[in-house]
Structure formats: structure tokens, C-alpha cells
Measured scan of single mutants.
Amino acid sequence: GIDPFTGEAIAKFNFNGDTQVEMSFRKGERITLLRQVDENWYEGRIPGTSRQGIFPITYVDVIKRPL
């Protein structure tokens, strides 16, 4: 089901994660935001896939912030 505490964002740019914990994505992908890790990073996942990880806040347009 849908978790009411998650947020939502759209990727503004392609992001290629450097490490296992970073999640790569392509511009235009819809991302579920799980939490804000710190002032620069979100943790999120791509709905319908097993992809999950952290990524820079500046790479996405936030539609709804996670609670």
C-alpha cells in the first residue's frame, strides 16, 4: 500500500551513484522519498522496482516532502 509518510519527487537530472548505498536514476523518473538523511541527501526508492538508496537533494524536484 501507500505509506502516508513518504514523499515524492521527480528526477531533474541523471544521477549515477558511486557506491552501493547510492541509487542511480534517470531524468524524469518518479521517486518515492523515504526520509531526508541530512541537508544534502534523501533516501528513496523507485516504485515498482527493487532500487533503493540515497541521492543528492539537488538532483530532484520535490513534489511532497517525506514526514
Rank of each mutant, 00 (worst) to 15 (best):
Y59K: 07
K64M: 04
R51I: 06
T49K: 03
Y59R: 05
G53Q: 01
P56S: 02
G17F: 02
E29W: 03
E8N: 07
R30D: 03
V60F: 02
T58G: 12
K27F: 07
T6H: 12
E43C: 15
G7M: 09
P66R: 06
T49I: 02
G48K: 06
E39G: 11
V60P: 00
N40T: 12
N40V: 13
E22W: 05
R35M: 07
N14V: 05
L33N: 04
Q36K: 08
R26M: 14
P4N: 13
F5D: 13
I57K: 11
R65F: 15
I46W: 01
E8K: 08
R51E: 03
E22I: 04
V60T: 04
G48D: 08
D38W: 07
E43G: 03
L33M: 06
A11Q: 00
I63S: 06
G44K: 00
E29K: 00
E22P: 02
F13C: 15
S24N: 07
R45E: 08
L67P: 15
I2S: 14
Y42K: 00
N14Q: 07
N14E: 10
I63G: 04
S24R: 05
Y59N: 05
Q20W: 12
I63P: 04
M23G: 01
G53D: 00
R30Q: 08
G7S: 08
D18K: 11
F13G: 07
F13E: 14
T32Y: 07
I31D: 00
Q52T: 09
R30L: 11
T32L: 10
V37F: 08
L67Q: 15
E29R: 02
L67R: 15
G7K: 08
A11D: 00
L34G: 04
F15Q: 00
S24F: 04
K12W: 04
F55L: 07
Y42A: 07
E8G: 04
G7V: 07
D61Q: 15
M23C: 03
K64Y: 06
V21E: 14
Q20S: 15
D38K: 06
E8Q: 10
A9V: 05
E22Y: 10
S50F: 10
R65Q: 15
L33Y: 02
V21P: 11
L67A: 15
I54W: 07
F15S: 01
I63F: 07
V60C: 06
G1Y: 09
S24G: 07
D38T: 07
I2Y: 13
E39W: 08
G48M: 07
A9M: 03
I54F: 11
K64L: 06
T6C: 15
G28Y: 05
I54D: 01
A11G: 08
R51Y: 03
Q36A: 08
P47F: 10
I63K: 06
I46N: 01
A9R: 02
T6Y: 12
Q52N: 08
F5I: 09
T6G: 07
G1R: 09
N14W: 05
R45I: 10
K27C: 09
R30E: 06
R51T: 03
T32K: 08
S50Y: 09
L34D: 05
P47M: 09
D18Q: 14
F25W: 02
R26A: 13
